[in-house]
């Protein structure tokens, strides 16, 4: 699936994660800012990229600012940002959940 427009989901508040997605041409270009990037960076990236795979998105620029979010939070923010970026907010894809 092609990214239709740049999208943002989540906030910068404690225990949340903010994800911005934009069109890309070079696979999933992942960028993470997090105080726990050293310990959990790979896990955060895997959680988000799994969601992108479920939406069949293979090219995107993904910018993530994490404030210590837990996995389910990361996953739900990733789902939201994908729906927004694909311009499909009115067609929730329950199977991804």
């Amino acid at each position: 699936m092609e990214i239709k427009k740049t999208a943002l989901a989540g906030t910068l508040e404690s225990s949340d994660v903010q994800i911005m997605v934009s069109q890309g041409t070079n696979g999933l270009e992942f960028d993470l800012v997090s105080d726990v990037a050293k310990q959990f960076g790979e896990q955060i990236q895997a959680t988000i990229e799994d969601v992108f795979a479920a939406y069949d998105i293979h090219n995107a620029v993904i910018k993530v600012v994490d404030q210590g979010a837990l996995d389910p939070v990361i996953k739900s923010r990733a789902i939201t940002v994908c729906q927004r970026a694909l311009d499909q907010v009115d067609q929730p894809r329950w199977e991804v959940l």
């Binding site: 427009k5 740049t6 999208a7 943002l8 906030t11 910068l12 508040e13 404690s14 903010q18 911005m20 934009s22 404030q67």
Partner: peptide, 21 residues
């Protein structure tokens, strides 16, 4: 820090609703 993050986040979300990212 919590107030600062909340403000920046709100401003950013508001801009994104106007298509500014």
């Amino acid at each position: 820090g919590a107030r600062f993050n909340r403000l920046v986040s709100t401003l950013e979300t508001t801009l994104s609703q106007d298509g500014i990212f």
